[in-house]
């Protein structure tokens, strides 16, 4: 007798709400999804993707980068991307020359190019050196190497 009673009690509260249950069980899900959405909206930063995917080196440097005029992306296989262009490393000199002349004609009081390098961790020192030499030949005023923060 006792058992039957408890069974009835436990069944009863479910019976009227069966129709609403499909919607109501979704509310915790929506709460979580909203939380994740807000997290990604606030914590993430949006940037245009680079034409070549690179894995930047990790450093302990505390300096935040200033907004650069130009970003050169160096891939481990020697390709260089600037803006939307992807070129081989030997064409960097002529590209820089073109860029420099267009800049000089563009504004009279330019203070030289500032270039940020976004290089892959696997880039070898001689590849980096040849790129740096090209930049120095083009008399770039400021060169920065972009890294990510050590987690």
């Amino acid at each position: 007798m006792k058992l039957q009673r408890t069974e009835r009690r436990s069944i009863k509260p479910f019976a009227p709400s069966r129709r609403d249950r499909s919607d109501e069980s979704l509310i915790p899900l929506i709460n979580i999804v909203f939380l994740i959405l807000i997290f990604f909206m606030i914590a993430g930063r949006m940037e245009a993707p680079d034409p070549i995917l690179v894995d930047p080196p990790v450093s302990t440097s505390p300096t935040r980068p200033s907004p650069p005029q130009l970003i050169l992306v160096l891939a481990a296989d020697g390709r260089i991307a600037a803006g939307d262009e992807i070129m081989e490393s030997q064409h960097l000199d002529e590209w820089l020359a073109r860029k420099l002349t267009s800049q000089v004609s563009g504004d009279a009081n330019h203070q030289g190019l500032q270039i940020s390098l976004k290089a892959d961790t696997g880039v070898r020192a001689d590849q980096l050196q040849s790129v740096l030499n090209s930049l120095r030949r083009a008399s770039v005023q400021k060169i920065t190497l972009l890294t990510t923060r050590r987690p």
């Binding site: 990604f40 993430g44 450093s59 505390p62 300096t63 980068p65 940020s116 740096l132 920065t144 890294t147």
Partner: peptide, 11 residues
């Protein structure tokens, strides 16, 4: 979105 925190080294 991405979570890179960029740092700069002056060359």
């Amino acid at each position: 979105s991405h979570f890179h925190q960029w740092r700069a080294l002056t060359v």
